[in-house]
Amino acid sequence: MNSDKFLDRAHDIQDTYGYIPEGEIDKMAKEFDVPRAKVYGSIRFYSMFYTEPTGKYIIRVCDSLSCHINDSKSIVDSIKNYLGIDDGETTENKKFTLEVVECLGHCGEGPVMMVNDEMYTHVSKNMALDIIKDCT
């Protein structure tokens, strides 16, 4: 790609559509003058870029070691239970996508979760469900 604009463009598209559609990759390939496969491969390297539509809210729960020690698994389980989806899945109404992710950099305040850009710390099971219920 050889352009420091690539990630910006991809973020913009991701923010606009909630994922990076095929046609946009075609456009990026032309913009950056590389084979479209290369753009696709690069996009697919990053876990915050999606090539399929995701839910309106992406819930990311950290399960790296410090959070794991503080029982992040129980948070994950209760969300899974409540939404009826597994890690990496989206609810049928396309509202929520759940992801168990690695370290979110709030290891001193675990367990932590993010909903889209919002960070929540010291999350309990009930708190997690309340956060989800507040998403409209």
Partner: peptide, 13 residues
């Protein structure tokens, strides 16, 4: 990519 200048393959994920 390099020899044929086409580039249909990529590494993904």
């Amino acid at each position: 990519e390099e020899i044929q200048g086409v580039g249909i393959f990529t590494t993904a994920n």
